[in-house]
Design a protein around this nucleic acid. Sequence first.
DNA 1: GACGTGTACTTAATCGCTTAACTGAGCGGA
DNA 2: TCCGCTCAGTTAAGCGATTAAGTACACGTC
Lengths: 348, 348
Amino acid sequence: MVRARRPTIVDIAKAAGVSTGAVSYALNGRPGVSAPTRARILAIAAEMGWAPSTAARALSEGRVGAIGLIVDRPAQVLGVEPFFMQLISGVQSELALSGTALLFQVCEDIETEIATYRRWSAERRVDGVLLLDLRVDDVRVSAVTELGLPAIVVGGPEGAGGLACLYSDDGAAMREVVQYLRALGHRRIVRVAGPAEFAHTASRSAAFVAAAEEFGVETAEIVHTDYTGEGGTTATRRLLAARERPTALVYDNDLMAVAGLGVAQEMGVAVPADLSVVAWDDSVLCRLVRPALTAVGRDVAEHGRRAARMIIEAVAGRRVADQATPAAEFVPRGSTGPLARTRGVTEG
Amino acid sequence: MVRARRPTIVDIAKAAGVSTGAVSYALNGRPGVSAPTRARILAIAAEMGWAPSTAARALSEGRVGAIGLIVDRPAQVLGVEPFFMQLISGVQSELALSGTALLFQVCEDIETEIATYRRWSAERRVDGVLLLDLRVDDVRVSAVTELGLPAIVVGGPEGAGGLACLYSDDGAAMREVVQYLRALGHRRIVRVAGPAEFAHTASRSAAFVAAAEEFGVETAEIVHTDYTGEGGTTATRRLLAARERPTALVYDNDLMAVAGLGVAQEMGVAVPADLSVVAWDDSVLCRLVRPALTAVGRDVAEHGRRAARMIIEAVAGRRVADQATPAAEFVPRGSTGPLARTRGVTEG
DNA sequence: GACGTGTACTTAATCGCTTAACTGAGCGGA
DNA sequence: TCCGCTCAGTTAAGCGATTAAGTACACGTC
């Protein structure tokens, strides 16, 4: 299979009887060629099926028209957690509008991630990157800053150490969830959170604690897991086996919530009669299980599109301000309900 | 944020007091420089943190070191179906070994997909592509062949119209599933398949029909859906509402199986007492719901890694033979069991 | 001492495109 | 008639690599 020789501006120039410079001006909509000549060149280019060579353009313009996205979660989780794919879809769809490519990489740890940024920067593979899952004092921020690699923090809380940030205001939604659960009679609520080192985990936790205080929730505990189904299973089993078990669980992602639901079923804890379950990211998954999961949903794809727009701006050298994604929406479904009866310590 | 000027071979040449040609020979391990000079050049390059500019290399070598992957399923499905992310993780991890980048794109339809291949080819963005979800008489095959774009068909059945193909032999697993269900006493089995136009759907369906005949399954029906949760829900609802409802359902992906499980629960059909459920792709999801889903699992990430190796070979210009992925493994869990009692037409 | 043969380089063309600088024609005004 | 200006191009350098072809020197050989 011999790869066909694709037309270059030289071919167009020859066909049009002008210089390559003129062709370049015409194709890029710059002044310097007359209207008829421009039209002729454009027609020839279209007919030949010409498209600019990214390599050549990258070399002379210094920009490659690609941005990078690295996810570092185990493949297991990645596959099953809707959030990432939806985010990527969103990012990708927006990038496609400007012909920007998306380089995607899965890493195992943050060191490899940083090494990849270095390599990408050194090889000039990408014009900028999107950082996910910002950690408290995240080393990646200084790494990309040092490299001079334009970057946007996606989903972190505000003020990402000098980098522009797309944050989602989870505070209001968290407040709504806690208020709702409290109104249903719940007094022992546990938040099954993601890893403590993630900045957005911390910010949601803070909102949770504040809301619990505001609405007079007696016990408002937080346990940390790793976002995996197993993590959710283990945590839930432990929580439900406790003497004073919680009556409501607020999970940090849909996957863990589904896992929790399974554990409750397995332990004979009725949902929602004995236990209310709330999932943070809403997704098809939440609607498929029974009872359907009450969830806090946000438009993840839109989140991704915004992030894409921000990084495009940043790459273009324009200042980008922090931006908030539309507030998350609380969607009550069958997994939450009024507490059936007041329960004492343990029942037989 | 001024992007740091990254070192080029000119910088290295100056520092080493040699020409850029010598530097190039040294860095690429070619003869033409003495051992001491080579060592000196390598040391300087390492110290400067030099990495070859992909753009420059692409321009002079004609290869960009990137391969493309397009998925055309709605974002909704993508997010929630573990298969894709796991596949991509696998592909990506293998590509990373050779420093090859992965361009990832989500499309809405096959026309856009083909247009993207054209653009990628014209812009020389990728050296090759992986084709997913081969259709019967797939137009993409001729499209990439015409473009002279190296491509590998992932997961199609053998003989993908001239393109090398990585196929998974689903026949044996399907036979095992049907035999197992038949042994449990099931006589009315329905396969809830993906879209009929996918080649792998057709091949699995053929295996299903053959196995049903071999083991004397009375009713072996096939219904087609779109792989979405909603598709699974609707199909299942219709099937379970029928006068002679099936006693076992074999779903083409985990998502639909979970959806089916939900519908059964909602309609008061006990799983596995009244209905056995089998999912095709095994994933965390299958283990999280209750009862856990009996599933046919394969190592999707390994599938991806193989695909990556194949496309790298193809890009290098070597002939690539069709290859089979290790056979799928059948994992019985709680969602399948012996038929509780022989049921007549409809019961109250 | 002339000649061939390696070795260790250098030189310069090349990939495809952008763009600053230059050229030459046409035109208006003094 | 000459000057300056604008327009519509052309020319050529540059982006950062690779690589064929050339060069200079050392060495061995007859």
